[in-house]
Amino acid sequence: MIDVLYFAWVRERIGLSKEQVESSAATVADLVEELKAREERYAAAFADLAAVRVALDQELAEFDAPLAGVREVAFFPPMTGG
């Protein structure tokens, strides 16, 4: 099981801030495809991946990164701090 977290408008579109996902996805991109296939709200959130960032165990990562050993995946828009 992987903890999947959503922030900002990704969270709003999916309607959840956190869930546990049973997945055999090898990479982040594979996990995204699994989620998109579930329901329209996931497809809407991940429609434009250029607008989505990902962190694996709280470190920024790329969509082709492997998920082996990862416990926490987070999806969110580009950051706007400061």
Partner: peptide, 26 residues
């Protein structure tokens, strides 16, 4: 510090006004 924390620290701003709410775009 400012340049990096603006786009590498996980914060997201949402603005609320008379016309409703909108996430600030990077």
């Amino acid at each position: 510090l400012m340049d990096y924390l603006k786009s590498r620290a996980p914060f997201w701003k949402k603005e609320f006004g008379a016309d409703g709410a909108a996430w600030v775009a990077a």
